[in-house]
């Protein structure tokens, strides 16, 4: 009986947390029209975007290279190495670009966001903002949220582009796939609205989820060193799981039915 009550209680507290997360986001989004926040958002764009750029570019390059290598060894058996281009491009644009970017983003920028906001809470900076009649949702949460929403699709695009170039490097320059067919078969296969745009949409959804989780976990953390480290871990775990789960749903919606 007790365990059932415990399950009920934890479910209720989780529901309440979802409610708090929703209220937080709502409060932050009301802050859109303030021009004063633009420089703050640019600064956050630097923190979450530019500082994640290197890891995104290096990962994209290597993933593209590995895919070209793996794809080539399989495709060559069927004499279909001309399909290397579309294989690399489609996997990057549809899946790996958005998903791997979101996972790296959660690890690099998401955890940093949680820790930063958690520390601001622990050092009473959030309270102090409130006492200075400055809404922390507007001042702290909103710029970070928008920066995440903007930065993630940008990073995913860069990731895919660099990956395709990496695939070209390995496939064409090293393994000798014909450069013309690498690009032209890719061009005839990849569709702008179906593949590129859907990838961007995926990335936007992931950006919403990861940034939201990261900010909320920091905002809702227990303001102690233990609480913050726990919140940081939870950010990475929860947002990674959410990204992978959502990816399946989105893929089913976008590509499931021909």
């Amino acid at each position: 009986m007790n365990s059932i009550a415990a399950i009920g209680a934890s479910t209720l507290s989780r529901l309440a947390a979802v409610g708090r997360a929703g209220l937080m986001l709502f409060g932050a989004l009301l802050a859109v029209p303030r021009l004063k926040n633009v420089p703050l958002t640019v600064k956050q764009l630097y923190v979450v975007g530019v500082q994640s750029l290197l890891i995104i570019m290096v990962s994209g390059l290597f993933i593209g290279m590995v895919m070209a290598l793996q794809g080539y060894t399989i495709l060559i058996d069927y004499g279909a190495e001309a399909s290397l281009g579309p294989m690399v491009a489609l996997s990057l644009l549809r899946e790996l670009g958005p998903v791997v970017t979101a996972l790296l983003f959660a690890g690099r920028a998401g955890s940093a966001l949680t820790a930063e906001i958690g520390l601001m809470k622990a050092t009473e900076q959030l309270s102090s903002l409130e006492m200075m009649a400055v809404d922390p949702l507007r001042r702290i949460v909103a710029p970070r949220f928008w920066a995440g929403m903007i930065a993630m699709p940008m990073l995913a695009l860069i990731f895919s582009a660099i990956g395709i170039l990496g695939g070209h490097m390995v496939g064409v320059d090293w393994l000798g796939v014909d450069a013309g067919s690498y690009w032209s078969v890719m061009q005839s296969t990849v569709e702008w609205d179906k593949d590129v745009v859907n990838g961007i949409i995926k990335s936007l959804v992931f950006a919403l989820v990861v940034t939201w989780i990261a900010i909320f976990k920091g905002y809702d953390s227990v303001p102690t060193s233990e609480g913050i480290s726990k919140a940081t871990t939870q950010t990475v775990v929860f947002s990674s799981l959410a990204v992978l789960g959502l990816d399946f749903v989105l893929t089913a919606l976008m590509f499931g039915i021909e």
């Binding site: 640019v42 630097y46 860069i158 582009a161």
Partner: peptide
């Protein structure tokens, strides 16, 4: 410091536009 931030964000935006152009023109052949 603020200038450096803006400069880096500018580079970030330019890189994104370049990626988008590559995808649009070279990959999806818009």
């Amino acid at each position: 410091n603020k200038y450096k931030t803006e400069l880096m964000v500018g580079i970030f935006v330019v890189l994104t536009v370049a990626a988008l152009l590559l995808l649009a023109l070279k990959v999806a052949n818009q």
